[in-house]
Nucleic acid binder design. Sequence first.
DNA 1: TATTAAACGAGACGGTACGTCCTGTCTTGGT
DNA 2: ACCAAGACAGGACGTACCGTCTCGTTTAATA
Lengths: 199, 199, 199, 199
Amino acid sequence: MSQDSPKLRGRPPSKTARRKALAAAYEILMQDGLGRISIEAVAARSGVGKPTIYRNWANASELAMAALMEGHPEIAAAKKQSGLGDALMRQIKDIVQVFATTRGRQIALALASADPDSEMTRAFRNRIILSGREAGRQLLDAAVQRGEIQTPSDIEVVLDMIYAPIFYRLLVGHRPLDVGFAEALVEKAVELLKCQSGP
Amino acid sequence: MSQDSPKLRGRPPSKTARRKALAAAYEILMQDGLGRISIEAVAARSGVGKPTIYRNWANASELAMAALMEGHPEIAAAKKQSGLGDALMRQIKDIVQVFATTRGRQIALALASADPDSEMTRAFRNRIILSGREAGRQLLDAAVQRGEIQTPSDIEVVLDMIYAPIFYRLLVGHRPLDVGFAEALVEKAVELLKCQSGP
Amino acid sequence: MSQDSPKLRGRPPSKTARRKALAAAYEILMQDGLGRISIEAVAARSGVGKPTIYRNWANASELAMAALMEGHPEIAAAKKQSGLGDALMRQIKDIVQVFATTRGRQIALALASADPDSEMTRAFRNRIILSGREAGRQLLDAAVQRGEIQTPSDIEVVLDMIYAPIFYRLLVGHRPLDVGFAEALVEKAVELLKCQSGP
Amino acid sequence: MSQDSPKLRGRPPSKTARRKALAAAYEILMQDGLGRISIEAVAARSGVGKPTIYRNWANASELAMAALMEGHPEIAAAKKQSGLGDALMRQIKDIVQVFATTRGRQIALALASADPDSEMTRAFRNRIILSGREAGRQLLDAAVQRGEIQTPSDIEVVLDMIYAPIFYRLLVGHRPLDVGFAEALVEKAVELLKCQSGP
DNA sequence: TATTAAACGAGACGGTACGTCCTGTCTTGGT
DNA sequence: ACCAAGACAGGACGTACCGTCTCGTTTAATA
C-alpha cells in the first residue's frame, strides 16, 4: 500500500459541488470569456455556495484553469509512426484544431493572466500547454532512433520554434490559426530538423 | 500655427494631466503588476481626477497599454548589415533584453488580457509585439536581395518560428529567456533560412 | 471665528440618498424588526449603494437608530399647566401611547443592543428615551415654583421611578403597557411627590 | 403515569459537553460581550461540536441566556425581617451589586435582544429579572401583615416603580448604578409605601 | 461479553450578510 | 471648457457565521 489515510474525519467534500462549480465556470468561460468569470457568478449559476468554491480553489483564475483542464483532450504522440513528417502533422493538426476554438482562446488567456508561481498554474501549463511540446520531443527522439534525423542540437529551442507559433498566433492574432498554417508549420519544422548542420 | 482650432473655446486639455496619469500607471505596473492597476489607484497616485483619465482612455487595460507604449524603445533593423546572422543576432538579443524584464512581462500580460478587437490593442500589438517581427522581415528581404539566402516559402510561418519563441518563453516560463537562448534561437533561425528546400 | 467652510469641493452628499435609505430602514424595522435589518437589505430596498450607506452610518445599528429618530414626535412638557397631576398625566399618556407600538418596541431594542459608548447611541438615548424624563423634570420644577409640591430630595431617583416603569414594561413585558397603567403610574407619582417627608 | 422513559437506548447525552459549552459561552460573554457570542465561537473554544450545541439550545441567544442563568445567585427575601426599610434595603443592595457588573450588563442585553415569545426567554425573565420583584412583593405582604403599612393600591405599579429603575439605569446608563442610588431608591420606596393616601 | 443505537467531534454544505474596493457616471466649485 | 475632488449606484471581492448534513468514533445500556 502507498498512502495510509490521514485520519479521515468529518463530512467529506462533495464531489457533486465540485463538478457543478466546474461546469458553471466552464459555461461562463465559453459564453462570456475569462474576464467575466467571478466567484459570485459561478456560485449563482451553479447553486454552489461561495465558501465551498473558495474551499476548492484559491481564486477565480484557478477555478477557470481547473474548468479548462477538466476533460481536456490529451495531446499525445501517435503510436504508429509512418514517419516524422506524418506523425508531426497529425499531432500539430490536432493541437491547432483544439486551440482554434473559444476554449483554446480562453486557455491562452487563463495561462497568460494567472499567477505564474502558483501550483495550479504550473499544473495547468504542463498539462495543457506543454504536453504537446513534450509529445513532440518523443516524436523527435523516435525519429532519431529510427535514423530518420540526426540528434538535433539545442532541442529545447527547436521544440519552442515548432510549438510556440501556435500559441503566438492564438494570443497575438496577427494571422489565422488554421489548417494551412499547421501544414506550413510542419513542413518548416521538418526542413529544420532534416537540414541540421546541413551542407 | 500648430493646431488648427475647430473653435478653441474653454480650457484646453492638459498634457500634464495625461503625462502624470501615464507615469503613475507605469509605476504601478512596475511595482504591483498589471493585475493591480486601476483607474482609482492611478488617479490617487497621480493626483489626476478620474473623469480626466476616462476622457483619455477607455479603461484600465488601455491605460496600461498606453503607459507601456510610452517611451518603448523602437526595435528596428540595424542599418549597417554585416550579414544576416549578425544582424539577426543583434536584433534578437535586443528584443530578448527588452522583454526579459518586469516591463516585458507586463507587456505580455497586457496584450494577453486586452480586448483583442479594440483599436488600442491593435496599435499596441503592432507597435510592441509585431514591430520586431516586421523588422525581421526586412532583414530577410535584405538578405535575399544580397543573395545570401533564397526567398523563403511561407515567410509568415518562418517569421513566427523566429519571433514566437521569445513571447512563448516569456508567458509560459518553462525555460529562461536569456542570452544563451537568444544565441541558440538565431543559430537555428539561420539554419532554417539557409537550408531551405534542403540538400 | 466659528466654523468657516473647510474648502467645500467635489460633489456634495445627496440628501435624497440619505432619505431613501432611512425610509427603507424604517420600513424594514416596522415589518421585520431590528434583528432583520441589514445594510444589504436596506441597500436593496432603497436602491442606494452600500458604500453610500456606510458613508453615512457606521453600521446597521446606527442606521436603525437614525431611522427611528427621524420624525420621532417631540415629547415635551405641556405649556398650559392646570396642575401637576394633569400635566403629568397628559405627558405620560403621550409617552405610553408612542411606545406601545411596534416603533416603541424597536426603539427599546435598538437602544438595548447598541454600542453604549457610541456618539449616535448617546444622541438617540437623549433624544428618544430621556427627553420625556427631562420634560418631567421641568413639570416638577414648575410645580415647585407654583408651591404645589416641595422640592423633592433625590430628584434623579424620583424621575427614574416615574419614567423607568414605562421602559421596563416595554422590554420585560411582564405586564401590559396601556392607559390603565399610565393612569396608575401618574397617581402613584403624584402620591410620592406630595407625601414627601411624610405626614 | 404520563411519559416514562420511551426506550432509553444508546449513548446518553453528555453532561460534560453541556457544561463545557456553557462555560465557554460564559467566558465569551464576559470577555467580548453578547454581540460577539456565536455558536461557532463557543464550539471552537469549548471543543464541543456544533450539532451538540444545537441539540441543547435553539440559537446563540438561548445559549447566552442559559450561560447567564447558570449559577446566578438567587435573589430572595430575607427571612428575618427587622422592618420593611431594612429588608428592602438589604435586597435592593444585593440586586444592584449583582447587576452592576459585566454579567449584569450582559443579562440586560440578553433579555432585551431575545425573542420575547420564546420559552427560554420567559424562564430567563422570570428567574433573573422578575425574581427580585416577586421577592419584593413578599416583603410588602409581610409588612402589611405586620401592620407596618397599609395594603397598597396598584401593587404592580408600585413594584415596577421600585424595581424598574435598576434595570433602567443599567440599560440607559444615564446615571450610575451604585450603592448611593440603591439607598436613595429604597428611601423613596418606603416613602411611597408609608404615605399611601397620606394626610 | 457482545450488540447496538444514540450522541459525539469534526467539518463540508448552501446560504446570508458583512465591510471594502473598484467601476464608470455625475455634479459640484475652482482655474 | 476643462480641471480636481469626490459622491453616486452597482457589483464583486474574500470572510465570518448561520443552521444542516454527513461522516467515523465513542460510549453505555441491553441482550
